[in-house]
Lab assay of single mutants.
Amino acid sequence: NKFNKELQWATWEIFNLPNLNEEQVKAFIDSLRDDPSQSANLLAEAKKLNDAQA
């Protein structure tokens, strides 16, 4: 299933962003679980936040 692979990839990527704190990671993962179809958008937002906090 396409969404499942995207969800797994986005989850792994978010867990490995070095500049997000635990609460931010949890919030993004919760959002992914709530709406897996938004995984690409949520990953992009997480990466933006990660870069901003570098």
Rank of each mutant, 00 (worst) to 15 (best):
L17I: 01
N4A: 04
V25W: 03
E45S: 09
V25F: 02
N4P: 05
E22V: 12
N41G: 11
D35F: 10
K47D: 01
S37G: 10
K26S: 11
A46F: 03
N1H: 05
A10M: 06
D35L: 05
A27E: 11
A40H: 09
E13R: 03
D51W: 07
L42N: 02
N19R: 01
T11I: 15
D34Q: 14
K5I: 11
L7W: 08
I14K: 03
N1K: 01
I29T: 06
L32I: 13
D34N: 05
A52D: 12
S37L: 08
F28Y: 08
K26D: 05
L32M: 14
I14M: 04
T11Q: 09
S31M: 14
E22R: 11
A40T: 12
Q38W: 05
S39G: 04
F15G: 15
Q38I: 05
R33T: 12
S31T: 10
D30S: 07
N19F: 11
L7P: 04
S37I: 07
W9R: 07
N19D: 05
P18K: 12
A44K: 13
E13W: 08
L20Q: 00
I14W: 02
A40K: 13
T11S: 09
Q8H: 07
W9T: 10
K5G: 10
Q53W: 07
W9Y: 10
N1V: 03
N4G: 06
F15P: 03
Q38A: 03
A40W: 13
P36A: 04
W9K: 13
A40G: 11
K26H: 10
F15V: 05
L17P: 00
L43T: 05
D35T: 11
E45K: 09
P18T: 08
A44L: 11
Q24M: 03
N16D: 05
L7I: 13
N41M: 15
W12Q: 15
D51Q: 12
L20S: 00
F15W: 14
N4W: 14
L32T: 02
K47T: 04
I14G: 02
F3Y: 09
N21G: 09
E22I: 14
D34G: 10
A40S: 13
L32G: 01
D51S: 12
L43E: 02
I14R: 01
N1A: 01
L17K: 01
E23T: 13
L42W: 08
N50E: 01
L32H: 01
S37M: 08
N16H: 12
T11G: 02
D34E: 14
N19V: 01
F3V: 09
D34F: 13
P36M: 06
N16Q: 13
A54I: 08
F28N: 00
L32R: 00
A10I: 14
L7Q: 11
Q38L: 07
S37A: 06
Q53F: 07
R33Q: 11
L43K: 03
L20K: 00
D30W: 07
L42F: 10
F3L: 08
A40E: 11
P36D: 02
A40D: 09
K47Q: 06
L17N: 02
D51N: 10
L43M: 06
W12S: 12
A44W: 07
W9G: 06
R33K: 12
E6A: 03
P36S: 04
E22P: 08
D30E: 08
A10R: 01
Q53K: 03
A54W: 10
A27K: 12
S39T: 14
V25A: 10
A52W: 11
Q24P: 00
N1G: 06
Q38N: 12
N19Y: 13
Q8D: 07
A40Q: 11
Q53S: 06
L17W: 02
P36K: 02
N16S: 09
E13M: 08
L42H: 04
L20P: 00
D51T: 06
N50S: 14
S39H: 14
I14F: 04
F3N: 08
Q24D: 04
D35P: 01
A40Y: 10
N1T: 05
V25E: 02
W12D: 15
N41F: 08
A46N: 00
W12R: 10
A27I: 10
L32S: 02
K5T: 15
W9A: 14
A52E: 12
A52L: 12
A40N: 12
L49A: 04
A54F: 09
K2T: 15
N50L: 01
V25Y: 03
D35S: 09
L20N: 00
P18V: 07
L43G: 01
P36F: 06
Q24F: 02
N1I: 07
L49N: 04
D35K: 12
N1Y: 01
Q24G: 00
V25D: 00
F3I: 10
K47V: 08
A10Y: 14
W9L: 14
E22H: 07
D35M: 10
Q24N: 02
S39F: 11
I14Q: 03
F15L: 15
N1D: 15
A40L: 14
L7S: 05
P18G: 10
S37D: 07
Q24I: 02
N50H: 02
Q38D: 08
W12T: 15
T11E: 14
N21T: 14
I29M: 12
L7D: 06
P18F: 06
I29S: 04
F15R: 15
L42S: 02
L7F: 11
L7R: 01
A52N: 09
D35H: 13
L43H: 03
D35I: 04
N19H: 13
L42Q: 03
S39I: 12
A27M: 14
K2N: 15
K2L: 12
